[in-house]
Amino acid sequence: MEFKDYYTVMGLARGATADDIKKAYRKLARKYHPDVSKEASADALFKELGEAYEVLKDPEKRAAYDRLGANWKAGQDFQPPPDWNAGFEGHGRGFGDGAGGDHSDFFEALFRRGFAGAGPTAGRGPASGGVHAHGEDRHARIQIDLEDAYFGGQRSLSLQIPQIDAQGRMSVRDHKIEFVIPKGVRAGQHIRLAGQGGEPIGQGQAGDLYLEVTFRPHAHYRVDQRDVYLDLPVAPWEAALGAQIEVPTPAGSVELTIPPGSGAGRKLRVKGRGIPGKTPGDFYFVLQIVLPAADSDAARAVYTAMRSQFTSFNPRSKLGVPA
């Protein structure tokens, strides 16, 4: 496994004080917090930071980590020394929601094995003695295609579920689930899969799994809440004279009327063709005028004729400059 340099992760020197560590954590946590940052890597960076903080803020864990010595480099191949756990008794509390599965192999190797009570379920006591409680709810993110929101779509997910056996050993169970994406779901919303969260204690109910939805970026469509936008290229004569054209939407093609005298940027709305739902969104075509190339004498003649025809036309009138 790879060595993790927790000091570098937190931007600290080895001699950092407890106060330095807390300040560095707060500062970086604000930067990388997945609810705050929009960076795709925020989740991973925040987890790494949380792990580093979990070790460095805890005098026992920090002392244990420091015992490894200062010569290790991040990413270097690492195996814990054989007598590693001797003399340390951990009592770490999971960092995030159901944090058991969120640590690196490096962390697990150093602090999980033999650290009693550190796991997400073990920490809550055994499932005996008449204690019944709901399992934890779990949260994850899922990226779907816009078409899935229009039609629903079968999806399968593979979840890595950490579990701890009666001997306190940690293992990861691969849990595959299949479900249908609910029609009408929008970016930023959450899909709840009942009973797919953490295991219950005793006879309680299993927790639920929440999936935060984002749309995979689409080559043509843009989405704003329920509404969907498409930049629609049209010929100058279609915009000027009007036209009936066939255009695509995720729900199939529609006949669109372009009114005569349309300009670039004009939005044409097709009601109810956005993301479906109780109040379906609308679909907007945003006109973009595309010019044929003036690459032949005949084509140039047409443009020349236009120039002589529209002598008083000033495309820059809004800029207050003469034609």
Binding site: R173, I177, E178, I181
Partner: peptide
């Protein structure tokens, strides 16, 4: 040790509509 199986989930809903 890891156990593999696939489970089909039918109780699926959109949280924000609750």
């Amino acid at each position: 040790m890891s156990v593999n199986y696939t489970h089909s989930v039918t109780d699926v809903l959109i949280l924000e509509e609750q």
